[in-house]
Amino acid sequence: MTIQPASTPDILDTGHGNGKNRVPSALLADLENALVSVDRVMAVRIVRDSCVTGSPFMCLETLIVPALEEVGRRWETGEVALSQVYMSGRICEEIVDTMLPAGDPRRVDQPKMAIVVLEDHHTLGKRIVLSVLRAGGYEVTDYGYGVSVDQLVDQVTRDNVIILLISTLMLPAAIRSKEAITRIRKILPGTKIIVGGAPFIFDPLLWKEVGADAMGHAASETLELVRRMAAEVQR
């Protein structure tokens, strides 16, 4: 079942170039194929058989996150569909929740993060990002959907959120994120804000216009952004 490009090396270094975390590329391709085929049983088996030793974080970083990132990359190039991205995230989230339950002390040493659908009732984008971040080992507070600017500012201030992710599908809601971001910055100038959703993809200048720190084209890209921002704020 494994489909590998001829040029793929037998061992992939997923340890950010330091060579510490190495996983057979065939294993990674197997997991990726199981995910896009929405084969939960196979995905669980692959992770279970290959993560018997080492910490759960090692398994996340070397196998699960790279597989999800590859699924995300293939969505951006049009090779897989959003329904497959969603199901991949859900499967990985379930797997990771059994390895690293929410509230596990090993998840605690992270900046406070939250995600919201602002003034909008389309939740798929948020759900995908949430799944991918949780599958990446992050604890993320879900503020839900249809949240007003006032509610969001209150929640972010109350929780002292350090990394905030704002998802929108409708253009008016995306434009309104500017007000939310402006008000949050006045109260919590250090908070990093990532926006995402269709309006930001169709208008590549919109994320700058609303004052965000970054935009996530895809959930896997958002995971990388969060990883980088988390490292910055923890420095």
Partner: peptide, 11 residues
């Protein structure tokens, strides 16, 4: 029924 529930229904 919402996007997420519908995708899970399809699969």
């Amino acid at each position: 029924m919402g996007f997420e529930a519908y995708i899970e229904l399809m699969y």
